[in-house]
Simulated scan of single mutants.
Amino acid sequence: MKYFFKTFIILITIFIAKPLQGQNYKNNITQYKVKLKGRSEKLIDLGDVVSADSMNTTFKAKGYGPVDVNLKSMKKKKMSPGNIYDQVSESTVIVSSAGRCGEVNERGAECKRIHTYPASGYIIDSKGIIVTNYHVVNGYVTKYNTTSRDVLVVMLKDGTVFPVKEVLLADKSNDLAIIKIDPRGVELPALRVATEDAEIGDPVYIVSHPKGYFYAFSSGMVTDKFSEINFGQYRNLMAISADFAAGSSGAAIIDQYGNVMGTVTYTKTLQHSDDDSKTQMVLKAIIPSSVLLKLIKEGN
């Protein structure tokens, strides 16, 4: 009996002393930057892509009809922040233009490397329908983009890269775009879109790619709800305290139940009136989910 008891104590001690398995440390360069460039290059070489010049012939600021999307119903059970991250990160994508600039240097050598400019987006339909910002897609087709005009790609968290086949909707005033990829029969993990706007004080979460820190997680709350004029139209916006930055454009803002309650649009630095070098706070603006749902249902 003593032998059994000693053995039991030793096993318990080993179990307690054994470190718990934590989350892995990701390598943003090898896991995402290198794969994004390498797999985009393969798509370009295969030729099954829609170039910026081709997409620009159909891309417009408004004038789109309703979008046929299979939206899932809202969740109403609170989730832990960890569970929200696990779920939302699988549905968060990297949206990036990619291409060879073809510039010739002073020695006469042509640049053959692949240029990419990663932003964010999120899946709303398992058949390959994705939301991002208008300015992300416009950044691909605009004449000012001279370095990455070969393909607009969507990269999943597991590193799979797809070319964007079509822009289903674009709205300049509300800074939203809905794009389509062909997932080749794979059912993609889609997020649920909230049918009720959040209120000031509600908790929010975001998974995005600020400045190449891919799949970073941040939390905060809704801090304001306001309207502003943008390109001649009034639009409704919210402000949140959760952090995001360049590269987060098009990311989903998530409520405590795991539903999309908004989409990143811009940040605005608020400076001291007497000294422009002194930043007092950063306003982080998002587009409410009600705006996205109205565009899906009615078009623009």
Rank of each mutant, 00 (worst) to 15 (best):
T57Y: 02
A190G: 05
V222H: 07
I296K: 05
E187W: 10
D275V: 04
Q271N: 14
P66W: 06
D243M: 15
V282E: 03
K127G: 10
V207G: 06
P66F: 08
K77N: 14
V69M: 07
N133W: 01
K211I: 13
V161G: 07
M281K: 15
A98F: 08
Q87A: 13
V207Q: 06
P66H: 08
Y144I: 15
T92Q: 06
A109M: 00
V154L: 06
S249H: 05
L293D: 05
I254F: 02
I16G: 09
I14P: 08
V137R: 06
Q271M: 13
A170V: 04
K78E: 11
Y234I: 14
A245Q: 13
L156G: 02
R149K: 14
S277V: 09
M55C: 09
F226C: 04
A61I: 04
A52G: 10
S91L: 04
A52Q: 08
L283K: 14
K143W: 09
G128W: 02
N83G: 09
I181L: 07
S208M: 04
G47Q: 00
Y32A: 07
S148V: 03
N27C: 01
G220S: 05
S89C: 01
Q256H: 11
K2H: 15
M221H: 12
A251I: 02
N70V: 11
K297Q: 10
L169E: 00
P288H: 03
Q280G: 11
K157D: 06
Y32T: 01
Y117G: 13
G108R: 04
T267C: 04
N138R: 11
K157P: 04
K60M: 10
K294L: 11
S40C: 05
P66K: 05
V154N: 04
L20T: 15
G247R: 07
C101P: 08
V151L: 05
V136Y: 06
K294S: 15
I240H: 05
E110R: 11
Q256Y: 10
H135R: 06
Y213C: 09
T195A: 12
E110H: 00
Y266D: 13
N145V: 06
I240V: 12
A198T: 12
N28H: 12
E187D: 15
D175F: 02
D275T: 05
S218R: 09
Y234R: 13
I129D: 11
Q31Y: 08
G47P: 05
V207P: 03
F214Y: 10
T160H: 01
E298N: 12
A190L: 01
T223F: 10
D53N: 14
E196L: 13
P118T: 02
I10R: 02
Y64N: 10
F8C: 14
M1S: 14
N24L: 15
K2I: 15
V49F: 06
A251V: 04
I44E: 00
F244K: 07
T279P: 01
I114G: 03
V260K: 07
R192G: 07
N28S: 10
L237E: 11
D202T: 02
K18T: 13
I123W: 03
I114M: 03
S249G: 07
G38W: 01
D86Q: 08
G262M: 05
N138S: 10
E41G: 00
Y122N: 03
S173K: 04
L292F: 04
L71G: 11
S40N: 06
Y122Q: 06
S89E: 01
L270E: 14
E199S: 15
T269K: 13
I94L: 08
A239C: 13
L270V: 15
I130D: 07
